[in-house]
């Protein structure tokens, strides 16, 4: 079933496998995958959306209570800008935390600062690779790649990629998936 790569003869406990071109040897002798970060476009898009929505919210909180009840109530309008400042910083932290690595036999996706999550999907288990791009994403020249396996719980999405990179990743994953294909 599994054709595998030439170097998957290692024992099951040999977690790291043999180095491959996609991986660089780490100082401690193990293999640290080559991580790729997301392009800055995603951060720009999310920040812009944040500014637009919170800007509208600021206007609403300033005008509605201010006009209906009294001008003093318009002071609530300072809350959304505070949220904006906090969100501005948080978005960058979140954006920095997203990274992915293509290893010889599996794809690694790591994300989240407070709620950290790391997903490993062996190429042979991929059923479908999907590239999606919504209208806002398209405007910013972004696309997301989503991997599906037979398990619905597999949550492997890489958002905010450059469309060219997304297509390269899709083609490469599909190619590797075919070579190592295994069913359920």
């Amino acid at each position: 079933m599994e054709t595998g790569s030439p170097h998957d003869a290692g024992t099951a406990d040999d977690a790291q496998g043999t180095p491959s071109p996609a991986e660089a040897p780490a100082p401690d002798g193990g293999v640290e995958p080559v991580w790729r970060a997301l392009p800055p476009g995603l951060l720009t898009m999310r920040r812009l959306l944040l500014v637009v929505w919170l800007g509208l919210l600021t206007l609403a909180t300033a005008l509605v209570p201010g006009l209906l009840i009294g001008p003093a109530w318009g002071a609530f309008a300072v809350l959304p800008p505070a949220l904006l400042l906090w969100g501005w910083v948080m978005l960058e932290r979140n954006w920095r935390s997203w990274r992915y690595a293509e290893r010889a036999d599996d794809l690694l996706i790591s994300r989240g600062v407070l709620w950290h999550e790391e997903t490993v999907v062996p190429y042979g288990r991929m059923q479908l690779v999907e590239v999606t791009s919504g209208p806002v994403e398209r405007h910013f020249g972004l696309a997301s790649v989503q991997l599906h396996t037979a398990a619905a719980a597999t949550d492997a999405t890489i958002p905010g990629l450059d469309p060219a990179e997304a297509e390269r990743l899709r083609d490469r994953l599909t190619e590797l998936g075919e070579a190592r294909s295994a069913g359920l």
Binding site: L114, W115, H116, E117, E118, T119, V120, V121, P122, R125, T149, A150, A151, A152, A153, T154, D155, A156, L184
Partner: peptide, 27 residues
């Protein structure tokens, strides 16, 4: 095993633990 996931929330990180999820084809 179809995919493997590691998840760690802030409270878990403070106590140095994490969860490992193993997903299979039967959902």
């Amino acid at each position: 095993v179809q995919s493997v996931r590691l998840a760690q929330g802030p409270w878990q990180r403070a106590h140095g633990v994490a969860d490992v999820h193993v997903d299979t084809g039967a959902n």
